[in-house]
Design a protein around this nucleic acid. Structure first.
Lengths: 231, 231
DNA sequence: TGTTGAAATAAAATCGATTTTCTAGTATAA
DNA sequence: TTATACTAGAAAATCGATTTTATTTCAACA
C-alpha cells in the first residue's frame, strides 16, 4: 500500500518510512506486540528521528501501532477477538459498499471489475513462494477494492482499506505456507458476475459468504495459537 | 474529546495542542477548507513546531485535516456529500453497534444507559447560549456513546467517535442558534427503553430514525449554503 | 527480608536551526 | 500573445541537540 498522505512530486522521507514500517508490521517482521524503541529503530533503519516519528504517528492512526503518552509505541497485538472484530466489520461494511457500487457504477466500473477478475484468475497463488503470494495478494486486493470503490464514499473506503490491511497481517503470519483448499476462483467469479449483472442481493450475499469463509480459514489456524482474549 | 493517544502521567504538549486544534476545527474557528500554515499557527498558538506537527498529523488521521505531501495542510472542507456520507455510515454502524451492546450489556450497562438518559433530560439546551449548548452536547454524546459502548468492538467505537465528531462540526457551524423543534427527549427515552428491555429491533429502528431526523434537520440548513458536490 | 527513596539511566518529547521543495513573479524567446 | 526558464521568497520537511519524563538500580531503613 502506498503512503496514507496524498503524494505530490518527490516522495517525502516520512512517507517512505511509513511504507517500509507498514510492510514490516503487516508481514510480521515487526512482531505483534513488539515494543518500538524509536531510537534503535532510527539507527537500524538509518533515518532521522523526525520523519520516523511522523511515520509512526500515521501508523498509530491506522491502528497498526499503539501509542501511550510518554511510554512509547507498540506494534498492535493480534488476538482472536481482534480478528473477529475485523471480520465482523468487513461483513458489515463490504457488502454495503458493494451495493452502493452497484448503484453508482457504470460501464467503466463493470469493465474494471471484469478486468481485475481476469488478472486475479491469471495470477497463481503458490504456497511457500513469497513472490507469488505477494503478487496474488496485490491482485486479490485490487479485485476486492474495485468491487467496492464506486460506492463513492471516501470515508468508507478508508475504513475498508484499514480493515483489509489488518486482515492481511493475519494472513501473512498464519497463512504463509498453507494452500487454499476451497475454490476461491469460483467464488470471485460468482461475485463479479452478480455485481456486473446488478443482482445486488446475490452479490452482497456471495461477498459476505466469501469473507466468512476466508476468515474461518484463518480463525482455525489462529485459535490454536492464541488465547481467546485480546492483550 | 480528549487526546487520541492514551494518556499516562503528565499530558504531553502534542496532546494538548491536539485537543485545542480539534476544538477549533469542530467549532469552525479554523474554518472548513482553510489553509493551515504551520509556522503561523505555531506563533499564534505559541507552541513549538514539533508537537504542533505531531498534533496535526493525528488530526489528519482523524479526518479533520487533509494533508498533501510537501504542500501542507488544509482543514477538511465541508460539503453536502460529506454530510451525507457521515450520516449514511452512522446509519449503518450505530444501530449495528447498539444491537451488539444489547447482546453484551448487563445490568451495569442498563444502569449506565438510564443514568446518561437522566442527565441528558435534565440538561437544558438553550439556543444561543454557548455554555448551555456545550453542556448539552457533552450529555448528548455521552448518552449515545453509552448506548453503543458495550458492543465491545474497539475499532467500531473508534470509527463511531470519528463520525460523531464530524457530525458535530456541522451542528456547531449551522445549528448555533436554532432551536430543535421535534421532541428529542421522547426519542431518546424511547431508544433507551427499547435498549434496556432488549427489544433489539425496536431499539435499532428508533435509533436509526433518530439519526435520520437529526441529519435531515442539518441537511436543510446546509443545502441552502453549499453546492451539492464536494470541493 | 521487604520497602522506601534517591540517583542514574534510558527513552520520549521538544526545541531551534538547516535543508529541501514548492510557488509566484519576472524576463526572455518563440 | 503564449510558453518556457530562471530567480527570489515562502513554506514544508528534516536534522542534531536539549529537555523532560519514566524506569531501573541500589542503598538505607524498618
Amino acid at each position: 500500500m502506498e503512503s496514507s498522505v496524498k503524494a505530490a512530486g518527490k516522495p517525502t522521507m516520512a512517507g517512505q518510512i511509513e511504507v517500509q514500517l507498514r510492510h514490516d508490521i503487516l508481514h510480521g517482521i515487526l512482531a505483534p506486540g513488539a515494543k518500538l524503541n524509536l531510537d534503535k529503530l532510527r539507527s537500524s533503519m538509518d533515518v532521522g528521528l523526525s520523519p520516523l516519528r511522523e511515520a509512526v504517528t500515521r501508523l498509530v492512526a491506522e491502528g497498526l501501532i499503539e501509542a501511550e503518552a510518554q511510554r512509547g509505541y507498540t506494534v498492535t497485538p493480534i488476538s482472536v477477538a481482534n480478528l473477529n472484530e475485523v471480520c465482523a466489520l468487513r461483513l458489515e461494511l463490504e457488502p454495503y459498499a458493494l451495493r452502493k457500487s452497484i448503484e453508482n457504477g457504470g460501464l467503466d466500473w463493470e469493465t474494471a471489475v471484469m478486468g481485475a477478475l481476469y488478472r486475479l484468475n491469471k495470477t497463481d497463488r503458490i504456497p511457500g513462494d513469497p513472490v507469488s503470494l505477494a503478487n496474488w495478494e496485490v491482485a486479490n486486493n485490487a479485485f476486492h477494492l474495485t468491487l467496492v470503490e464506486r460506492c463513492d464514499m471516501p470515508l468508507l473506503i478508508k475504513m475498508y482499506k484499514s480493515l483489509v490491511s489488518m486482515n492481511d497481517r493475519y494472513r501473512h503470519i498464519y497463512l504463509k505456507a498453507v494452500a487454499v483448499q476451497r475454490d476461491v476462483i469460483d467464488e470471485h467469479t460468482a461475485i463479479a458476475q452478480a455485481a456486473v449483472e446488478r443482482r445486488a442481493n446475490d452479490a452482497a450475499a456471495l461477498l459476505a459468504r466469501h469473507i466468512e469463509r476466508s476468515t474461518n480459514n484463518l480463525r482455525l489456524l489462529i485459535s490454536a495459537d492464541l488465547p481467546e482474549n485480546p492483550q
